[in-house]
Amino acid sequence: MLRALSLEPERCTGCLQCEMACSFENEGVFNPAKSRIKVFAFHEEGRFAPYTCTQCDEAWCMKACPVDAIVINSKTGSKDVLDSVCVGCKVCTIACPFGTINYNSSTGKVIKCDLCGGDPFCAKACPTGAITYVDADSTGMERMRAWAQNSPSAAPNYITPVEKSTQNYQRAQ
């Protein structure tokens, strides 16, 4: 089964645990500035929205890359950046309609979500279940789009932590 990150903004509290988990897993430091997942805060609306690469089927970043540095991971379906090939031209960052592939000035390469090879740390770190890693056919993108377009009338007005299985940080650097 192919799985995907499911993002439910109505469950996000803006704690940024996902950004820290992502940067720690990928960069070895707690650093939201280097996270592949971002939480956007909408102050006036009182809402937070986590956002990252949706792993488009027709991945424009991949098509735009002049050196074929972005490849499909056959195990997870993610589109991964090959650091050894990437020349840092940033064309992919322009091609991406969602702004979820970004240039990392300290390495001269681009960075994007690779689903942590099939075990995404952001989902494990999210305390409220706003980020889950589920069957790719049931991520509820349509519902999210509806939510993004309309003020959520049915959303609960408080968010509580969810049960998590014991987590394994074996891969932590």
């Binding site: 509290t13 940024l16 645990q17 305390p127 959303a155 408080y158």
Partner: peptide, 28 residues
Amino acid sequence: HEPRKSDGKPNLTTNAACFGCTIACGRI
């Protein structure tokens, strides 16, 4: 949490966290 008479919305929109907080006691 009680809906207001005027617009049916409660005073509280959501709770919110500070940086790194998994409690999220903040009131919005």
